[in-house]
């Protein structure tokens, strides 16, 4: 019994961690009013960069940081398009989702002799309890350190938004940029920085998969987690704790699918696989309902405009 419970916790956290990173990334961008649906692409390039750097350098943390860097660089494209060129943010998000994986696979094939997967890394993200045996309760709960980092990031973002001056500025920029401007807040500069931050976070999310869950990058490592994280942000009503909770819920449903499956299960495997998605919709209907995006979401800010 206890074994199952600890297993449930471990799988939940494993599944949700990449989504938490990407979700927080999406959140920080959206909070300042820039729609960022390109997190999937940023996750992918981060996943690749992390695995590649770790393979060549032998250091997982270096890989993790470079993953964030890669995601941030890709985000510059989105930031430039949305803020400088004031284009449709959804379109540039889609562009990022196409360019990110394309670039990742392309560079991978250059670095790894035509293969679109990296070689497995030998140094992965360390576990919480170190190299203990995998038996028993402690063994089950011995998860990647990125799980803890994700939680800290979420908590940190909560503090940022609700307990600091910076956070108030961020939210003001997202709700009423003209008013924020009159207060001397540099709207576009703040937005630009936050979009880059969102890329960095998404990159971390990608690395948490290729350096934590598995130990290599393949074309299918990131397949939909970015979009689910966007859903999580909306589910969580654009708050850090809401997004974190939504990611946990989703990871929990996946964990249930794994634990309920297997030879003895009566429920067909494919129906069980639908569980996380059905559960999300049910929860939305029962508990969440309407959510409101930041008011200035999606609208480029022009100095001197009224809104």
């Amino acid at each position: 019994m206890l074994n199952s419970v600890t297993l449930l916790i471990a799988i939940t956290l494993m599944y949700s961690t990449p989504m938490v990173f990407a979700g927080l990334g999406n959140l920080i961008s959206e909070k300042t009013g820039v729609i960022n649906i390109g997190v999937e692409g940023m996750m992918t390039i981060g996943a690749f960069a992390g695995a590649a750097v770790c393979y060549f350098s032998g250091n997982a943390w270096l890989g993790f940081l470079c993953a964030g860097l890669a995601g941030g660089m890709l985000a510059v494209l989105h930031a430039a398009a949305s803020i400088v060129f004031q284009c449709d943010q959804t379109v540039s998000g889609i562009a990022v989702n196409l360019i990110g994986p394309g670039a990742a696979l392309f560079i991978c094939s250059l670095l790894f002799e035509g293969a679109t997967s990296t070689q497995p890394v030998s140094d992965k993200i360390p576990k919480i309890f170190g190299d203990i045996s995998a038996e028993g309760i402690l063994g089950n709960l011995n998860m990647d350190v990125t799980v803890v980092i994700a939680f800290l990031m979420a908590a940190g973002m909560w503090l940022l938004f609700y307990k600091t001056k910076w956070g108030l500025h961020l939210q003001a920029v997202g709700e009423h940029p003209a008013a924020a401007d009159t207060l001397g807040i540099k709207v576009n500069r703040l937005r630009f920085g936050c979009v880059i931050a969102s890329g960095v976070l998404a990159g971390f999310g990608g690395a948490s998969v290729t350096l934590g869950i598995v130990s290599q990058f393949t074309p299918i490592t990131i397949a939909g987690q970015g979009f689910i994280s966007i859903a999580a942000v909306i589910f969580g009503k654009w708050t850090p704790h809401g997004a974190y909770g939504a990611c946990l819920l989703f990871g929990f449903a996946q964990a249930l699918t794994v634990l309920l499956g297997g030879g003895e299960s009566v429920i067909p495997s494919q129906i069980l696989a639908m569980l996380p998605y059905i559960l999300t919709i049910v929860m939305l209907v029962l508990f969440v309902g309407r959510g409101v995006a930041p008011k200035a979401s999606g609208k480029p800010y022009e100095k001197g405009s009224r809104t």
Partner: peptide, 12 residues
């Protein structure tokens, strides 16, 4: 293509 799912099932 879901490595996390495979890992979770095997861990179980």
């Amino acid at each position: 293509s879901d490595a996390a799912k495979g890992k979770a099932i095997a861990s179980k």
